[in-house]
Amino acid sequence: MNEDRKIEELFKNLQGSFDTEEPGVGHEERFLQKLSNSNGVVRLKPKKNNWWRPLSIAASIILLFAVGASLYTTGRPSIDEQVAKISPEVSQTQFYFANLIDGQIKELVDQSTPETKKLVDDTLLQLNKLEKNYKKLEQDLIDGGNSKLILSAMITNFQTRIDLLQEVMDKIENIKTFKNYDDENITI
């Protein structure tokens, strides 16, 4: 107990004389400089900034968002799947017509010559507009519009594309025939 009293007296006597202020700016550098000047003391290297930790956290967050987004989008059926659910016949018809049209487009592009280039380009532009119109019809069908009317418009859209392609192919054949006829009548 006697020792406890001595310690308490010591602290009471020293009260107010403790240095509670922070060291001045550059204190650590001055202290390290004094240490390095003394013999046998090794200077400590300053701590490097670790950028890998914040970057790894950011990468983890981005990865989580990407996984969440992929789960969100894979959970929804595509427009084609939704149309097939509403009307399976439309899906089969679409597959048939789409393959037929794709084959005719490839043939049209293969038949393109400098004389028919503008005609082919205009036709492809019209087909693109008809395709956009068809996508809008699909969305209208999914949104619950008049299904008989929309299905009829979708079939008409396909028929219009096929008729357009056939008409253009006929015109290209006429241009080729006319060109061959002119080439035969040229005398050298």
Rank of each mutant, 00 (worst) to 15 (best):
R76H: 08
V109H: 04
K136M: 09
E184H: 13
D110Y: 06
K129G: 01
T113D: 01
L14D: 04
Q166T: 13
N39Q: 15
D170Y: 11
V83S: 00
Q111W: 06
S112V: 06
I155T: 15
F11A: 15
Q126E: 11
H27G: 01
L63Q: 03
D121F: 04
Q159V: 08
L64S: 09
A69I: 06
K47G: 04
E29L: 01
T156L: 12
L165C: 08
L14F: 06
E173Y: 14
A98D: 10
L164N: 07
E28G: 02
L55N: 02
Q92W: 00
V41G: 05
K12T: 13
L149S: 12
S36W: 08
G26N: 12
D102A: 11
G26T: 05
V67H: 10
L64I: 10
R30Q: 09
V109A: 09
N49P: 00
P23Y: 02
F11W: 14
V83N: 00
I186S: 08
G75P: 02
F95S: 05
S87T: 12
P114E: 10
A84Y: 05
R30T: 04
S36N: 13
T177Q: 14
D80M: 04
L119P: 01
P77H: 05
S91E: 05
E138N: 11
I61H: 05
R5D: 11
I105M: 02
S147M: 08
T93H: 06
K135A: 08
E138K: 13
K176N: 13
A66F: 07
K135L: 08
T177W: 12
P88I: 00
V41W: 10
G75Y: 07
E81P: 06
E89W: 00
V41A: 09
N146D: 15
K34H: 01
N50P: 06
Q82F: 08
P54A: 12
T74I: 07
K106A: 09
S38G: 12
E138G: 07
L35D: 04
T20Y: 15
I175M: 10
E22H: 01
D102H: 05
P54K: 11
F158V: 07
L44H: 02
I57M: 12
D110I: 09
L119E: 03
G16C: 10
D140A: 14
K118T: 06
G24L: 12
Q94I: 00
A98K: 11
E115D: 13
E107C: 02
W52T: 11
E9Q: 14
S78C: 07
I61G: 07
N2A: 15
N133A: 15
S38C: 09
P54G: 13
N185A: 15
L127E: 07
P23W: 01
L130T: 01
K106E: 07
E184I: 08
K136T: 11
G26Q: 04
S152A: 12
L35Q: 09
N99E: 14
P88E: 04
I186H: 06
K148E: 15
N49C: 00
K136G: 07
T20D: 15
F95A: 06
I105G: 01
I62A: 14
I155D: 15
L10A: 15
P114M: 07
W52C: 06
T187W: 12
N49M: 03
